[in-house]
């Protein structure tokens, strides 16, 4: 009985939350928290941060970016960056943020029909499953990249015993994540083959349209831009990852288009 009571009270709380979410406007002073861009952030986090920022810009939602060294620990879902603080609400990760914006009445996919919405979901899942995991693979599982880039960057904010400690635990967590998905035992070639395959299907889907679903940008554009742009611009040990993507001209053009439209200051 007691359990039922607490669970029902949680349910009421959640209902109340969504209700409050639904009623009010996009909160002013929304802050996006992320790790430090120049010295700390890693490729997978950077892609996610860029995707979220692009989505918010596309939807015309105001936000301020704040860099914190402990962003991943501050996040309501530990380890997931970026997260936004909108009024009282903390929302982490790309999809929950998209849903949150939708509950406030801001969505980029309202003009799509049912079939297109399915496509959108499928491609988003594909990007999350393949590109994100490939980034995690390169960052944490590729021995040389881990030693030369990941470790110095990730541990840059910690003092002596903690730098090894924190990196070790983060790596262990990431590797077990890859292991569960069956990515850990793949070779680098296999990973790049997967990337190539998804790039090809994205490229075919985009064809010569302006965005994936015509003239208006959608969640998928934001997500794809976040990942591709990060991969292209992040200096890694060799440029094989970037080169794989650069081979698809219309995807690069998409990045350029989004970049010039929403981030005028940056140059590809």
């Amino acid at each position: 009985m007691a359990d039922f009571k607490t669970s029902s009270s949680i349910l009421t709380k959640e209902c109340l939350r969504t209700q409050i979410c639904g009623e009010s406007e996009w909160p002013k002073n929304t802050v996006l928290y992320q790790p430090y861009e120049t010295e700390q952030i890693l490729l997978p986090d950077n892609s996610k941060c860029l995707s979220v920022k692009t989505f918010l810009k596309m939807a015309g939602l105001e936000f301020i970016v704040e860099a914190r060294e402990n962003a991943e620990y501050m996040s309501p879902h530990r380890g997931k960056v970026p997260f936004i603080k909108a009024g009282q609400f903390l929302v982490a990760d790309f999809e929950p943020i998209v849903n949150f914006a939708q509950s406030k009445g801001y969505s980029l996919s309202t003009h799509l029909d049912e079939a297109q919405k399915w496509d959108l979901r499928v491609y988003m899942a594909l990007v999350n499953n393949v590109l994100l995991n490939a980034e995690i693979y390169v960052t944490w599982n590729h021995e040389l990249t881990y030693k030369e880039l990941t470790k110095p960057r990730y541990s840059s904010v910690y003092p002596f015993p903690l730098n090894h400690w924190a990196t070790y635990y983060k790596r262990r967590e990431m590797l077990s994540h890859l292991d569960v998905l069956g990515w850990k035992k793949k070779t680098l070639d296999e990973v790049f083959k997967e990337v190539e395959r998804i790039c090809e299907s994205l490229s075919n889907f985009l064809a010569d349209k302006k965005y994936f679903f015509g003239e208006k940008p959608t969640d998928l554009d934001a997500l794809v831009f976040g990942h591709l742009f990060s991969i292209i611009t992040t200096p890694l040990l060799n440029n094989r990852f970037a080169a794989t993507i650069r081979a698809y001209d219309n995807l690069v053009q998409l990045c350029v288009r989004i970049e010039t439209e929403f981030y005028q200051s940056r140059i590809l």
């Binding site: 620990y73 501050m74 309501p76 530990r78 603080k85 903390l90 903690l162």
Partner: peptide, 21 residues
């Protein structure tokens, strides 16, 4: 390692979460 009990924990406290030595 400081962690927060729930999503509703005060943000001021949340800002201090994370690792320190």
């Amino acid at each position: 390692d400081i962690n927060m009990l729930s999503k509703n924990s005060p943000f001021k406290l949340r800002e201090e979460s994370g690792l320190s030595v």
